[in-house]
Computed example of a mutant assay.
Amino acid sequence: MAKNQVYTKSYHPYHSLNDPCPDPGEKHYSTPPHLYMGFQPEKLPQFTPKEALQKGTLWPALYDPYEKNQKLKG
């Protein structure tokens, strides 16, 4: 998995010229790290059991803090 992988994607929804609503602009969404890992490598570092329960995964490489709308704005 690349260290500089971008987990935030964006798109511009279709907006018709006849649509009375304002153009919604560019939308952003977060994608989880496991989508970019073709397979799980052996001997990945692991969180402690307590940390794993708090973070929702045993492996730091698969952890995504998902900072909803703090950096994404949209």
Rank of each mutant, 00 (worst) to 15 (best):
M1T: 05
Q5R: 13
Y7F: 15
Y7H: 13
Y7P: 00
T8Q: 09
T8N: 08
T8K: 06
K9R: 15
K9M: 14
K9Y: 14
S10P: 03
Y11N: 05
H12T: 14
H12A: 06
H12E: 10
P13Y: 08
H15S: 05
H15W: 10
S16A: 13
S16H: 13
L17R: 13
L17Y: 12
N18D: 13
N18F: 13
N18M: 11
D19A: 08
D19Q: 09
P20C: 02
P20I: 01
P20Y: 02
P20R: 03
C21L: 15
C21Q: 15
P22T: 02
P22M: 02
D23H: 14
P24M: 01
G25W: 01
G25S: 06
E26V: 08
K27S: 03
K27R: 14
H28N: 10
H28Q: 12
Y29W: 15
Y29K: 11
Y29T: 10
Y29G: 05
S30E: 13
S30I: 07
T31Q: 15
T31H: 12
T31V: 15
P32I: 05
P32G: 02
P33N: 04
H34V: 03
H34L: 06
H34M: 10
L35P: 01
L35F: 14
Y36R: 07
M37T: 03
M37Y: 09
M37N: 03
G38C: 06
F39K: 09
F39C: 08
F39I: 05
Q40D: 11
Q40E: 13
P41H: 07
P41D: 09
P41Q: 09
P41K: 08
E42M: 08
E42Y: 10
K43D: 15
L44F: 04
L44Q: 13
L44R: 07
L44Y: 04
P45M: 05
Q46W: 04
Q46T: 13
F47A: 00
F47N: 00
T48A: 06
T48V: 05
T48G: 08
P49E: 03
K50W: 11
E51F: 02
E51L: 04
A52I: 00
A52F: 01
L53Y: 09
L53C: 04
K55S: 01
G56W: 06
T57Q: 00
T57P: 00
L58N: 03
L58F: 01
L58G: 01
P60V: 01
P60W: 01
P60N: 04
A61W: 04
A61C: 12
L62H: 03
L62D: 02
Y63D: 00
Y63P: 00
Y63L: 02
D64K: 03
P65S: 09
P65I: 00
Y66H: 13
Y66L: 08
K68R: 13
N69Y: 12
N69H: 12
N69Q: 14
K71A: 07
K71V: 07
K71R: 11
K71W: 07
K71Y: 08
K71L: 10
L72I: 14
K73D: 10
K73W: 10
K73S: 10
G74K: 07
G74E: 07
